[in-house]
Design a protein around this nucleic acid. Structure first.
Lengths: 291, 291
DNA sequence: GTGAAAGCGCAATAGTCTTTGCATGCAAGT
DNA sequence: ACTTGCATGCAAAGACTATTGCGCTTTCAC
């Protein structure tokens, strides 16, 4: 299957990690390699270093630690693997558009979503959806711009009839909410690009309290992966300075869709109730059924 | 099919050939570009020269003859074109309704994004970006689950150094904010599926007060289209009860990317300042750089 | 057949990228 | 508390890449 292509890419790279493991900064470099293969396969060592938040030298040393002669050697292998994982599927395309930043951004998101589509393991999403469905309550931790994804997830899950709350407004609220987490609860940590200290902390505390913890991220940081039962990897590479939230949003959407399928009756009832309320409050401009 | 994608790629490159044609050696270079795009997009000018049986200098001159500054410039365009022609093809893969709900959701989003990519008029995004850049302040109205898109837009635009605020917490706040809107302001209304009454009202009031009004929506409702100077149409069809926010998020991302390109210096400075603050406050788990 | 013009390779130059030696700071163990 | 070892950043060195000026060679016109 096509899905295996990217898996092979990941596995291949991970298999080269030496027995004694990787130092923190080297691990950071590896994360970037896995989460942004395109950029890594084209860019220079210096560019990669900046993305990983390390010095250029560390990139070279990481390449050597992975068993390559240096960065160019690693990059060459990377190119071959990544490209073949891309072209593994049917290649049919229609592509037009000029090089304006917005057009490039759209194209990039399309690429990322294609990558996500192939890489995504549905089993993981199913596991998370079932956990949320079974939970007493679900808390979503999402800081920075990722808050948007968390909010969307919480909103729609709520609509589907589940108690899902997004914590997005700072450490104080986060502390209070985490304090109330218990054994029958679920915590989902959403984090792209930069990992906030408080997110890791919240995940660890929740885990210690017996809650089930999941993570949605663009790079499997050891700190987060350790606390999480399952990690959903999402490409978040953007064309400008900002990581793209598009693929993350697609995952949120997929998760809610899966959640809605766990107990269709419950979801239908919940949505019907919500629609009733909308009408009652006169919120909508054009009504669902023209009423 | 593959041939179609390649045709596009070929056409684009051939269209850049100057009127008076190419000299023999330059034609040889072009031939290699067309027949081995992968190698060309990764390799150096010297490698390409060897493949074409010409001198390195000829490669550079051919790039210039094709209207690029030099080989690196040509290569960059080549990469973008070639890569997207490859991966956009994944979109055409398997339209079947099989698979888990989450997998279907991802596929649907992928389709939507492909559609968006084809239909999107970059001119509109450019217009909006420039309006926001020129505005004293920008207000984003986004209720319900669309609030997520609005928040993402506001957050990233803020990071890029512009005063963009999302109003998402109800009619009271909306009323207050709209009351402060003036001639030099911009309002962006985001609305999918359901159109909230208050959104239409806000758009009309802002328009009446002389602000520039734009809309992002999945269906051009007359009420909103009337108030808006430009309407961005976004596919938002989901597989379950919920409209998908993925394509909307992609538009937000594209918009911010375009905005960041309006005044790169301003954006860079703003982001640098933000990064400095993150370090100062110790928010991040893995720091950008140990320095 | 001769002169002019243009293509093209050679080689020098300027710039960039990778690697490595060295120093520093942190952490673990005595 | 001191020492030792290791990870990491800094900076210099070395290698490579792209571009451009220069001159040779081919081609076409008269």
């Amino acid at each position: 299957m096509t899905e295996r292509a990217t898996d092979r890419f990941d596995d291949w790279l991970r298999a080269r990690v030496p027995a004694r493991g990787l130092r923190p900064k080297a691990a950071a470099v590896l994360e970037v390699l896995l989460s942004q293969p395109r950029r890594a396969s084209y860019g220079s060592a210096a560019e990669l270093a900046q993305l990983a938040g390390v010095n250029v030298a560390t990139v070279t040393r990481t390449a050597q630690a992975l068993g390559f002669a240096g960065w160019p050697a690693l990059q060459q292998e990377l190119r071959a693997r990544y490209m073949s994982s891309l072209s593994a599927g049917q290649v049919a395309a229609e592509h037009s558009g000029t090089g304006s930043p917005s057009a490039r951004s759209l194209r990039r998101d399309l690429d990322s979503l294609a990558l996500l589509n192939r890489r995504m393991d549905e089993e993981v999403l199913l596991t998370i959806a079932e956990a949320v469905a079974a939970a007493r309550r679900t808390v979503i931790v999402a800081d920075g711009s990722y808050a948007a994804v968390g909010l969307a997830l919480a909103h729609n899950a709520g609509l589907a009839g589940y108690d899902v709350r997004a914590v997005t407004s700072g450490d104080a609220e986060l502390a209070n909410t985490v304090a109330a987490i218990g054994e029958r609860d679920v915590l989902i940590a959403i984090s792209f690009w930069r990992l906030y200290e408080s997110t890791v902390l919240a995940a660890n505390v929740a885990r210690a309290r017996g809650a089930r913890v999941f993570a949605v991220t663009d790079a499997a940081s050891p700190a987060l992966a350790e606390a999480a039962e399952q990690v959903v990897m999402v490409p978040a590479e953007g064309v400008a300075f900002f990581p793209s939230l598009t693929a993350g949003m697609a995952v949120a959407q997929a998760l809610v869709t899966q959640l809605a399928a766990v107990d269709p009756a419950r979801t239908s009832a919940s949505i019907e109730a919500a629609e009733g309320m909308w009408s009652k409050f006169g919120l909508l401009h054009r009504r669902p059924s023209g009423g």
